[in-house]
């Protein structure tokens, strides 16, 4: 499963991710990370069974942990299968098959929303 870890400004300089990994022994697979002086955000892959442990370890150190379990919605009625979404998705959710049908692999979605503003036909959305 994919999780989003949010680290606020006041603790962004502390090595809480490393501490949580050492404490739990769970190898987080980091798919995306963004840090600046204001905050940090990490998208990581973990096994479903490890969720509770890693969440507790991170939350006790001040981070926020969210499950990314509501991936992008694809409205096939609105979609014209142009493929505009393909080149902006950081995790290759979208692809074309041999017959130029758009294929959507939701399991790769990290809910970043980049494709939503790219889609000219308002065919992609996220539940809030």
């Amino acid at each position: 499963m994919k999780i989003r870890i949010i680290i606020d400004q006041d603790i962004v300089t502390r090595p809480i991710l490393a501490e949580a990994i050492l404490e739990t022994g769970i190898p987080l697979n980091i798919a995306q990370a963004h840090f600046d002086s204001a905050a940090g955000e990490i998208i990581a892959d973990i096994k479903d069974t490890e969720y509770r442990m890693i969440k507790n370890a991170l939350v006790s150190r001040g981070a926020e942990v969210l499950k990314l379990d509501t991936p992008i919605n694809w409205d096939e009625e609105e979609c014209v299968e142009c493929g505009a979404c393909i080149s902006v998705c950081p995790t290759k959710v979208f692809s074309m098959d041999m017959e130029w049908n758009l294929k959507v692999d939701n399991t790769k979605c990290i809910q970043c929303g980049t494709c939503i503003e790219m889609c000219p036909h308002d065919a992609l959305s996220l539940d809030v």
Binding site: I86, S87, W100
Partner: peptide
């Protein structure tokens, strides 16, 4: 660099 079409080849076909 990944490319994206803005026109639909499927529908053109």
């Amino acid at each position: 660099v990944v490319t994206s079409s803005l026109s639909s080849f499927k529908r053109s076909r």
